[in-house]
């Protein structure tokens, strides 16, 4: 298990004001962030641009040193022993950078494998397996510059797997990809956790991706973790509205009065239409049972009913709005 406790990162940089004047600027990129990643699980880290996602992920990947805090991977202090830690973790960023375009996939992997000190025969075997896994075996001897975006991204993943890491950090891996390629990629990520038992941390802009993949979610804003939980927990705890939409026939005046009476102050009710009415009820709690009871007691026939689940995107936006 990877356990990060109270991570903070302060950046100090100089901004030049005129030729010789320099102003020191301190930026608290991450404050007091604690998180856990278990093997075989996918953890999501979501937030807007500049919220501290990348800084957090870079600290976990040992690229930068936290100002305060502690990161343990299976009891190894990775801040002190960052060279050791680098052998069991890897970072995969979205986009087309971080690989050599003039080299082929095979050559890229040979180079990066050598940086991890992997013996040649083991490395060759490994490259073969990984290329097979990401589906690049056939194009392994073509220079990367002739690859499509999706192929480059898959090579990035292959690169991230070269040292057989226990924990993988994925920084917006589907950024700018076509929807079908992104979908394919998500299935790889799921496989990594399920079949290979890797612990995965994922940052992304796409909430649907988080919903589909993540077992646990952290929401980060202005460098603070403002909410966390499984997707269901988050929905339950943080949902602000449930929406019920009913289509009914012949809504009597009495029924309408009673319905409004029951839901008064608890929900927002709108009724539209003449012969066939559409009733929309928006509330924090779920009043479906009460609504049905009321309508059937007045013999109003319900033609159709839709219950809108709380939307994770809505929840995240709400959390972020509140945290500002």
């Amino acid at each position: 298990m990877l356990i990060a406790t109270n991570l903070s990162k302060k950046f100090v940089y100089k901004e030049s004001k005129g030729l010789f004047k320099k102003k020191l600027i301190v930026k608290n990129a991450v404050n007091d962030v604690s998180l856990k990643i278990e093997s075989g699980k996918i953890v999501g880290l979501i937030g807007v641009n500049g919220a501290g996602k990348t800084t957090t992920i870079k600290m976990l990947a040992s690229l930068i040193k936290p100002t305060t805090g502690e990161i343990l991977i299976d009891n190894l202090d990775i801040i002190k022993e960052h060279k050791k830690a680098k052998r069991i973790i890897n970072l995969i960023s979205g986009g087309e950078r971080n690989i050599y375009w003039r080299l082929t996939a095979q050559e890229n992997l040979e180079y990066f494998g050598a940086l991890y000190g992997i013996p040649k025969d083991v490395l060759n075997q490994k490259i073969e397996t990984i290329l097979e896994m990401v589906g690049l075996t056939e194009s392994k001897d073509i220079p990367v510059e002739r690859y499509s975006k999706g192929m480059k991204q898959r090579l990035q993943i292959a690169r991230g797997l070269i040292n057989d890491p226990k924990y993988i950090f994925l920084d917006e891996p589907t950024l700018g990809l076509d929807i079908n390629i992104a979908k394919e990629l998500r299935s790889y990520i799921r496989k990594l956790a399920d079949d290979e038992n890797k612990g995965i941390l994922l940052t992304t802009h796409y909430i649907s991706e988080v919903e589909e993949l993540c077992d646990y979610i952290y929401i980060i804003s202005n460098g603070y973790i403002v909410a966390e939980g499984t997707p269901d927990e988050l929905k339950e705890e943080l949902s602000t509205k449930t929406q019920v939409v009913l289509t009914v026939e012949v809504l009597t005046e009495q029924a309408e009065v009673e319905l409004k009476d029951i839901l008064e102050c608890k929900a927002e009710v709108t009724i539209e239409g003449e012969n066939i009415h559409t009733i929309k009820v928006i509330s924090k709690e779920n009043f479906t049972a009460e609504i049905i009871r009321c309508l059937s007691s007045h013999n109003v026939s319900i033609l159709n009913m839709k219950l809108m689940e709380p939307d994770l995107e809505e929840i995240v936006l709400n959390v972020l709005r509140r945290s500002e």
């Binding site: 990947a61 040992s62 690229l63 060279k83 050791k84 680098k86 052998r87 890897n90 970072l91 960023s93 986009g95 950078r97 971080n98 690989i99 050599y100 375009w101 990066f112 940086l115 991890y116 000190g117 690169r159 040292n163």
Partner: peptide, 18 residues
Amino acid sequence: QNGTLETIILSPANWLAV
């Protein structure tokens, strides 16, 4: 600029050797 330097630093490779 291409981010490959970051990838090198990500690995445990000895910088002097690089």
